[in-house]
Amino acid sequence: MANGVWVVLQHREGQLPRISFEAIAAAQKLAAQLGGKAEAVLLGAGVGLAAAEVAKFDLAAVHVTDDPGLRVYTPGAYIGALAPAIQAASPAFVVFPHTYQTVDYMARLAQGIGAGLLPEVTGFESGADGLVWARPVMGGKLQSKVRVRGEGTVLVSVQSGAFPSDSAVLLVEAGEADVKPLAVDLSGVKPDREVLGYEEVGGDTVDLTKAEIIVAVGRGIGGADKMAPVEALAKALGAEIGASRPVIDNGWLPRDRQIGSSGQTVAPKLYVAAGISGAIQHLVGMKGSAVIVAINKDPGAPIFTVADYGIVGDLHEVLPALTEAVRAAKG
């Protein structure tokens, strides 16, 4: 029977991003629910310092690999390391931070070992017949409740921000979790991807992170030829123009205006989002803004859940009216 909770941590050259601590928090909460302590896994080469940092958390163990074959991430090597370990220990759940790297290999790992696959959860609660998980569907317009059926390990990834990292529990009295080597044998792994290098996405000429005010537009603007009211408002406010991904993908604005998980992360004092629905990949790039204004014709758009002020309406009417009001106020 599958038993216990594992958490696989992502790091970049030994540095742990916040979402790895969020994954620890999620795994601890889940393990407590099932009656036990979570165990962490750290893959890589020379990740001793990161392991020591993880060992400060209330975990049953930290399993650490040190294999040159894991220095550069490839799905083949990561799956080659994790698959036998998960199959041998058969934990009920393996928790991952929901990152682009995780998504790149988690589904294939699940398929390979016959585990269940539950991506991008935002929470769970225990119901009459077991755990009920929450995850967004329809680009965040709806929240779904999901149950897992059947037996065997389930791979779960947790959405950024869903389990606050500061809720991860440290070991009291300066104790340390057991750091154990995780033996891996990558000799049988078929290389699936030869990494040639990494490159910056070109054209980063606009630094939106320095802007005090941003007027951001989404697909709701309707075309490159409809940008004038946005430009007028940005000018009146002394703002930079930003955008959601589809605006960029459609070629209505250049790529260096994209805000979100694949674009820039901004936190201006005022963020005006017009015609943007508020998918999580957009929200992670702007929800730290001091004041958020949302303008959308759909009152159910998820952008309103992070907004301070909202106007339900057609942006082609609201933006010119707003420009006018700003001009009047500024005299």
Binding site: V137, V146, V148, T305, A307, V318
Partner: peptide, 29 residues
């Protein structure tokens, strides 16, 4: 499938957001 969707619901809309009513001009002001 191991996963079964048992329910879907809308997020609490405008939780915390002040919704400004009226026509475009009034709301903008």
């Amino acid at each position: 499938s191991r996963l079964e969707i048992v329910a879907v619901s809308f997020p609490e809309s405008g939780k915390g957001a002040q919704m400004l009513e009226g026509d475009a001009k009034a709301a903008a002001a």
